[in-house]
């Protein structure tokens, strides 16, 4: 069955958009895909998460993700809530600027200073795209060029695309550098 992704953070961090961009890229590569937001009474500053399932061939069986294989934790509450649910051997991508604890678990944890990196690039609003870059570097679930095509389409060729392109590659490179010495805490 397909690969399960869960992205979680605060409302306003672009969590749902990150999932949507990933889903769009998967569709462009003719994969089966589903995107499901947690649609509770969420608001800016509240919790937000979305589940993406990508199937190499055929349609997605179930769009619900109870136990992610890949978790992107944008903040501490999400990290604390979903890391214990991540499957053994799964990947947990952590925004270390907003997570000041470390849980143990049979998963690969990659800590990345997403806020700081995006501030250096010019805007913290690109944190979701930075983490998307990291996710692609660590999972290769879709090609980087496919994602960039989607970013260009969604953000427009001028506008905020250049910043987001930079954030994508920064996340991609940072994760690549750390991928060789990721922490597997047992």
């Amino acid at each position: 069955m397909g690969k399960n992704f869960l992205m979680a953070g605060f409302g306003g961090q672009g969590v749902l958009l990150m999932g949507e961009l990933l889903a769009k890229a998967a569709l462009l590569e003719n994969k089966g895909v589903s995107w499901l937001p947690a649609y509770g009474p969420e608001m800016r500053g509240g919790t937000a998460n979305c589940a993406v399932v990508i199937e190499e061939e055929g349609e997605v069986v179930s769009p619900l993700v109870f136990e992610p294989e890949v978790l992107v934790a944008f903040n501490k509450p999400s990290y604390l809530k979903f890391l214990p649910k991540t499957v053994p051997g799964g990947i947990v991508i952590v925004n270390s600027d907003l997570v000041d604890v470390k849980l143990s678990g049979p998963v690969r944890q990659v800590f990345l200073p997403a806020n700081q990196a995006c501030l250096e690039l010019g805007s913290m609003k690109a944190v979701n795209i930075y983490l998307l870059g990291a996710l692609i570097a660590l999972t290769s679930v879709v090609k980087a060029e496919t994602i960039l095509g989607v970013l260009k389409e969604v953000f427009g060729p001028k506008g905020v695309y250049p910043l987001n392109e930079k954030a994508f590659w920064r996340g991609y490179d940072d994760a690549g550098k750390r991928a060789n010495h990721v922490e597997t805490v047992n």
């Binding site: 949507e20 569709l27 895909v33 589903s34 995107w35 499901l36 937001p37 349609e59 997605v60 769009p63």
Partner: peptide, 10 residues
């Protein structure tokens, strides 16, 4: 149900 209403699929 709410899942079917909110899910996005190709």
């Amino acid at each position: 149900d709410g899942i079917l209403g909110q899910v996005m699929e190709p």
